[in-house]
Amino acid sequence: MNARLPVLVLAAALAGGALALAQHARASANGAVTWKSQSVDLPYPGPHFSGEGAALLNPSCSTCHSADFVNGQPHLPLATWKMEVLKMKNVFHAPVEAKNVDALAKALFDRHPAPAK
């Protein structure tokens, strides 16, 4: 990290340039920053699993992330899916019963077929 110091002192305002400023820019010169509390809504819970394997996947794989994320994963080897299921179970304590690990891995594998060459 010995590259030349990129930090500009605030006073040396960034004149011109391609900087597109947001309309609601705060006046940060002179240290005059106004703080306003924020409260937002998120479009939760997001999609659940549907189709083949959904009855198995929803109870095990929906607590922490919406199903769109899992559905967007690439084709992966069955062993990789099994590792993912075990990772979710062991690291994050996903509600996966030991007897369902293989079936979950198989369901995920089947839902992510190899792309047509």
């Binding site: 937002v40 809504d41 998120l42 479009p43 939760y44 819970p45 997001g46 999609p47 922490c64 992330h65 919406s66 769109d68 994320f69 967007g72 994963q73 690439p74 084709h75 992510h112 792309p115």
Partner: peptide, 27 residues
């Protein structure tokens, strides 16, 4: 890339955000 179809989140679907490629709703 393969299995790369994603919905586009319309402006305002997420707070403070315009149109974005929706990889995951939660989180």
């Amino acid at each position: 890339f393969a299995n790369g179809m994603r919905p586009v989140a319309p402006a305002g679907m997420f707070p403070g955000k315009g149109e974005m490629i929706l990889q995951r709703v939660r989180a």
